[in-house]
Nucleic acid binder design. Structure first.
Length: 414
DNA sequence: AACACGATTGAAACCACAACTTATT
DNA sequence: GTAATAAGTTGTGGTTTCAATCGTG
């Protein structure tokens, strides 16, 4: 991939289609993605103007350049002087929008080239520019509005309307929902509080989107009480996991015990509720979690559910070509580098210093470098024994039998 | 473009047996 | 309900094997 359209090899590439892993010029983009209903669903965005290989996630207003996550980090992540550059989220789109609609979507591109309007203009009914779509496809975007410049802002009215957040405070507050004891666990229709992450499905979408209509968000219902089975750590001794960007990224707080205990009561206190709500921002808003998600080679769907007496965390996965890039496509993961996520209301610089986030990102990157994916030994005693057992071609042998490998003295009996 | 071939990579299987879990008395 | 015992299951690491992938001609 490069500056030239991967399809025609002639025009300069402008948009990136992750589904096709291709950089396309606008003309070819329209041609390719008007072919059928499936291709229309491909989510595209601008191509990074720095590396020309990855989908751009943000637009730096200062430098007038569209950057992917990595390049954004390269450009803005190292110098505090440019960390404060005003950056805007670059939104993805599907369908076959016209040049004017693309111009509207990406208003910061003043010299937006015109493309043929004919290709599938009649198909515009199928088009869904995500941010402006009435369907409000992506979860958190259900609660966001897009201004003319593409900057995502929080609409508290929408938040209240959506029922996702409770209370009227500027800080989203986790609320408990009435519990219906007769409601089967995992029922989609349960009156449960479900917060879905960006790039995943919000409640409305779970119901409306054909693409996911058969997808049960409660495919895997994981109680926090049993999280140890999933993460292999204990609540009070999960520092390593947190530090590795796992749970920390999901819960926004290392105090899982506090969070959990608050959940147990189904009434989240202010402090932990923020942490929990941060957890809903998930994954996609945090490169750390995105990374951890990526390791699963699936598209994890994270939902948080509260019920009377306990809380549950649901992961679901869609196997396939999904990857962290899918989150990038929807612009969600860029939020990490965009300051506070859209549903986080503006706050004073003193309370939400961007340097804190930068520091957090820095810590994450450092941790990522040293992260070890070693096999976890559950029983040290067994390991100790295995380490000294004699073998033949790597296989354990009976005591007293001939061996070709002795870990203790590296000798052979035969 | 299609095919064959060798090199590389990654995952699974294998082994014995102490430690652990579950069932029975 | 508790303790003791028996039976069954699990996990451990180095090596080999095999299938998948990649690069080259």
């Amino acid at each position: 991939m490069g500056y030239i359209c991967d399809f025609c090899g002639d025009q300069r590439s402008m948009v990136y289609c992750r589904s096709d892993a291709a950089c396309l010029c606008l003309s070819c983009d329209r041609n390719v993605h008007s072919a059928n209903a499936l291709s229309k669903r491909h989510s595209r965005t601008l191509v990074c103007e720095r590396c020309s290989a990855q989908p751009a996630l943000i637009r730096c207003a200062e430098e007038r350049i569209s950057l992917c996550q990595n390049c954004d980090w390269m450009v803005h992540g190292t110098s505090s002087s440019i960390t404060n550059h005003k950056r805007q989220t670059i939104n993805c789109y599907t369908g076959c929008p016209s040049a004017s609609e693309l111009s509207s979507l990406w208003s910061f591109i003043l010299d937006f080239p015109s493309v043929g309007e004919a290709t599938c203009e009649q198909e515009l009914g199928l088009m869904s520019i995500v941010e402006n779509s009435s369907s409000r496809a992506w979860g958190p975007e259900n609660t966001t509005n897009q201004n003319a410049s593409g900057t995502v802002t929080v609409d508290e009215a929408d938040i209240a309307k959506s029922g996702v957040y409770g209370g009227t405070s500027s800080v989203p507050e986790l609320i408990s929902m009435p519990n219906n004891p007769e409601q089967p666990v995992g029922s989609v229709n349960a009156p449960l509080l479900k917060l879905c992450c960006p790039g995943t499905k919000g409640p409305a979408l779970c119901k409306d989107d054909d693409l996911y209509k058969d997808f049960n968000m409660d495919e895997v219902d994981l109680n926090l009480e049993n999280y140890e089975e999933l993460f292999g750590v204990t609540l009070n001794n999960s520092e390593e996991l947190f530090e590795n960007g796992g749970i920390e990224s999901l819960f926004g707080s290392k105090d899982m015990s506090a969070a959990d205990s608050n959940c147990q009561g189904a009434v989240a206190a202010e402090g932990s509720s923020v942490g929990l709500v941060n957890a809903m921002q998930p994954a996609c808003s945090n490169a750390a979690s995105a990374d951890s998600m990526m390791s699963t080679k699936t598209e994890p769907i994270l939902c948080f559910t509260t019920r009377q007496g306990h809380s549950s965390l649901s992961f679901s996965g869609l196997t396939g070509e999904s990857s962290v890039g899918d989150y990038q496509d929807c612009g969600a993961s860029s939020m990490l580098f965009m300051g506070e996520p859209p549903w986080c209301p503006p706050c004073p610089e003193s309370s939400c210093p961007s340097s804190n986030r930068s520091n957090a990102v820095m810590r994450y990157k450092e941790k990522k470098k040293t992260r070890m994916f070693e096999k976890k030994v559950r029983y040290a005693s067994r390991k100790a024994r295995a380490d000294v057992r004699r073998r033949v071609k790597g296989r354990f042998v009976k005591a007293g039998d001939a061996y070709d490998y002795d870990p203790l003295n590296q000798t052979r009996s035969c």
